[in-house]
Amino acid sequence: MPVKSQFFVFEGIDGSGKTTVSKKVSEILSTKSISNVWHREPTDSVHGQKIREFLQGKLKLSQEEQLKLFLSDREISVQDTILPTLKNGKCVVQDRYYFSTAAYQGKDEEHAADILYMNEDKGFPEPNRVYFLDLSPEEALERRNTRGGKKEVFDEQNEQTRIYQNYLAILPDSTIFVDATADLEEVVNFCVEDILKSLSINV
Rank of each mutant, 00 (worst) to 15 (best):
P2T: 07
S5C: 05
F7M: 05
F7V: 04
F8H: 06
F10K: 01
E11L: 11
I13L: 03
D14G: 04
G15N: 04
G17I: 02
K18D: 09
K18G: 09
T20K: 07
T20A: 04
T20F: 13
L29N: 13
K32Q: 08
S33I: 14
H39D: 11
E41P: 10
E41H: 03
V46T: 13
K50R: 02
F54R: 02
L55E: 06
K58H: 07
L61E: 03
L61V: 07
Q63G: 04
E64C: 11
L67W: 01
S72A: 02
T85H: 02
N88Q: 13
G89R: 11
K90T: 01
K90Y: 10
Y97C: 00
A102M: 15
A102G: 14
G106L: 13
G106R: 11
E109T: 03
E110Y: 10
I115D: 04
L116Y: 14
M118A: 08
M118C: 04
N119I: 15
E120H: 11
F124D: 01
E126C: 10
F132C: 13
L133F: 13
L135E: 15
S136M: 12
P137Y: 14
P137K: 00
G149M: 10
K150L: 03
K151F: 09
E152P: 03
Q157W: 07
Q165S: 11
N166Y: 00
I170V: 07
L171E: 14
A180T: 05
D183I: 10
L184S: 12
E186Q: 04
V188F: 13
F190S: 11
E193I: 05
S198D: 02
I201E: 05
